[in-house]
Design a protein around this nucleic acid. Structure first.
Lengths: 212, 212
DNA sequence: CCTAAAATTGAGTAGTCGCTCGAATTTCAT
DNA sequence: ATGAAATTCGAGCGACTACTCAATTTTAGG
């Protein structure tokens, strides 16, 4: 039998194709980050990879598909699942510091986030789902911290989660306009310090030590 | 001499012109809010006012000028100078509640804020200046509150001002994606309650009143 | 009323964009 | 090697864009 694996007769992609697609996605990330989706062009992406516009559209059939590829590529690079428990605040701050070193990621995020609120924008559902997912992830993490007594009394985990997400997005935009004046990580840390209580210095002793 | 006032011979604008320009600016606000600057068209603005594209460009010579007019029109409608002292927090929350009733203003702001971070965007300096102005306004207001002992110890006025601004912008974006789930005013109030201390119940009596 | 400035408009221009089509070239299992 | 599939590309299409120009209509000062 000449059939190998499933009986699909068409040949698969060539060896270098995966790498080519990654190059295109990276270029799309940079172009849409610098010019927006509506402002960027397929030609510009092609130029950056050094190939023809037609070839780019061979790998990603439409401009919208190119945007989706750019967003997925960004996810693969930027998004790190937040630490839990004690490490939650720490990991949020660390990721903010890390992103500061890759401005292209922040640009893409900020530009498309605003642009995608417009009618019929291909990234709309991406951001809708992302916001809902992150809100519930943050809220759950903060709920655990509250149960552990690490949250300042009166702080609502859902509200604080929404606030943290909004603050993060907002501070990125301000940073893009004035990178010298804005310290993203410090601002996030200040908010987290506000809603969180310091860990007990040591495992709380069952009974206070007697004074001699 | 036939010269009247300053010696300008050309006639001024007609009576209805000011109103026409306001209509155009309002339409531009709606169009750019719903489609963005790059996604919106001059023709669409003209259609909404019910006049030809050429006439719109007679009043505002370029598309960029149309955007500036839309932003200035928004400022005239939306921006209210924040109250001072005790009324600062109150007025921030009130303005958030008020804006919720005019989604077009929030759309324009959110869309253009992100879009204007891109290269050569005509609204870039508008947002640069706006952010810097609001940061210093908020910081100064919070500094006064700190001097009055109304700020929680350890809260830095500059950081809190930047945070408030970032939070406000970020929560607007989340609200645009999920208006049913997000309460902008409540989220802002929760942050303000976190950084502020309640006013002393009454002017501290010099001496406790005697009980008969 | 008259007339010059202001406002409005239809037609048109040059340019750009996403995308298609057919052909040439490269890859790679046989 | 060979040939079919995968990839690349030049040419071009149709639609849309901001903006211009010349001509007409409306306004209002004298």
């Amino acid at each position: 039998m000449a059939i190998k694996g499933t009986g699909r007769s068409p040949r698969g992609p060539y060896a270098k194709t995966a790498e080519r697609r990654r190059q295109i996605a990276q270029a799309a990330l940079e172009v849409f980050g610098a010019r927006g989706y509506r402002g960027g062009t397929v030609q510009e992406v092609a130029d950056r990879v050094g190939m023809s516009q037609t070839s780019v559209l061979h790998h990603f059939p439409t401009k919208a598909a190119l945007l989706v590829a750019a967003l997925e590529h960004r996810d693969a690079i930027a998004d790190e699942s937040p630490g839990t428990g004690d490490r939650f605040a720490e990991s949020v701050v660390r990721q903010a510091e890390h992103n500061e070193g890759a401005p292209g990621l922040i640009e893409l995020y900020a530009v498309l986030c605003g642009e995608s609120t417009t009618e019929g924008h291909p990234a709309r559902t991406y951001f809708e789902e992302r916001f809902e997912r992150l809100r519930s992830e943050y809220a759950e993490e903060l709920r655990h911290l509250a149960e552990a007594g690490r949250l300042r009394p009166g702080v609502d985990p859902e509200t604080a989660g929404t606030t943290l997400l909004a603050l993060w997005d907002g501070i990125q935009v301000q940073w893009l306009f004035a990178p010298a004046e804005i310290d993203m990580a410090a601002t996030l840390k200040a908010y987290l310090d506000l809603i969180m209580l310091p860990a007990p210095a040591a495992p709380a002793p069952a009974a206070p030590a007697d004074a001699p």
